[in-house]
């Protein structure tokens, strides 16, 4: 029992929360029909993955700068993806598509 509790340090919690976020957002991504909702779900999924990335690595190897750098890159990529998606969706709606 104590072992279990010890295992649940902050870093591990980050990873767990990230996994939960990922699963929830994935569900939203698949079920929602609106494009903007899908995009939001994608962003939340991304955050979940980033949490796993930092949390899990730190939990297993201690403080580590590499995942931080990776997540930074990942956030940039996610922002770019969101921007691209927004542009496309906006144009699509302007041409008469369902948002």
């Amino acid at each position: 029992m104590t072992l279990w509790l010890e295992a649940f340090n902050t870093d591990f919690w980050y990873a767990i929360v990230g996994a939960v976020l990922l699963v929830l957002a994935l569900g939203a991504f698949i079920t929602s029909r609106q494009l903007i909702k899908k995009l939001l779900a994608f962003n939340i999924m991304g955050s979940g993955v980033f949490l796993i990335m930092v949390g899990l690595a730190q939990y297993q190897h201690g403080p580590d700068s590499v995942p931080q750098a990776l997540v930074l890159t990942g956030i940039v990529v996610a922002v770019a993806a969101t921007a691209l998606a927004l542009v496309l969706i906006r144009k699509f709606v302007l041409k008469g598509g369902q948002p």
Binding site: G46, V49, L56, Q60
Partner: peptide, 17 residues
């Protein structure tokens, strides 16, 4: 994007491991 996130989640696990 969905595919990439799946991939990235795997990368996170592998790095953790």
């Amino acid at each position: 994007l969905l595919g990439s996130l799946g991939y990235l989640a795997g990368v996170a696990l592998l790095y953790g491991q």
